[in-house]
Design a protein around this nucleic acid. Structure first.
Lengths: 132, 132
DNA sequence: TATAACTTGTTATAATATAACACTTTTATG
DNA sequence: CATAAAAGTGTTATATTATAACAAGTTATA
């Protein structure tokens, strides 16, 4: 089994830094305006970096928000099994790292007996801070 | 507890028919070009109908595809707890209706002990047909 | 009938994402 | 090392997805 290189290119590093330092999910065009000081100028440069970073397990895409979040899971080597908690008020997003959940979903068989190597789960609710 | 009306407006009916008769997830602008023969002309008319239909539990949005699918679950009264199987080859999408899964996710407590009223789960794999 | 809530029609534009092509850099390997 | 293949970059243009804003019509019902 060939292991995908985790080495990052110049643009990938630049984009990853921006995603990391953002406090929560960040949008592609927000990243773009930020990385302009690093010489990047056009959307494809950002989107290409984002795609690679996702494949390399460095960041995740929050599908329901068209936004990107750096991976909090030190053990995460891929982008294949993800779960998030999303606050419907403040829009805060947290990655859920929970063995019971990931085991259940990884072992889940549908009615045809099929298992899945890849999933994305998004939970929606009101976070602690917004409740109080 | 007030029950949300399931009554559909004219445009909602028109859009729902198009989603229903489509063989799988359908895009907003595909719907638009289809409903032009019914007199609808502009994106907002379609998007408004889609939003309402989702809230009324008649259709679902497949987040990772920006596409819409009619709800297969006769018992589905809301859009709050959804699970789908998505083929990575042919892009076929099937709604997963599985009590074990929905129970597990509805009862799931995160590390803070929090439960969620709403979730969306997307499984990715290769469907039977594409495998053979 | 008045009025509030909902629905529609319309134009314009915002936000998100990719195609296509030329060029450069890095990596692998004969 | 040479050099070819693969990966990465820069750029322009354009495609795709979605919403803002406003005016007007319709429906429910107090």
């Amino acid at each position: 089994m060939k292991i995908k290189s985790q080495k990052l290119s110049k643009n990938e590093k630049v984009v990853l830094e921006v995603v990391k330092k953002s406090n929560g999910p960040i949008k592609a065009y927000t990243i773009l305006s930020d990385v302009k000081k690093n010489g990047l100028k056009a959307p494809p440069q950002v989107y290409r970096a984002l795609d690679k970073l996702i494949k390399k397990g460095k960041i995740h895409r929050i599908e329901s928000k068209n936004a990107y979040l750096d991976c909090q899971n030190s053990k995460c080597k891929t982008s294949s099994r993800t779960a998030f908690s999303i606050c419907q008020k403040c829009e805060k997003v947290t990655e859920i790292i929970n063995t019971k959940l990931s085991k259940f979903l990884s072992n889940f068989k549908d009615d045809a007996g099929k298992e899945y190597q890849k999933y994305n789960l998004e939970f929606y609710g009101i976070c602690k801070k917004c409740k109080s």
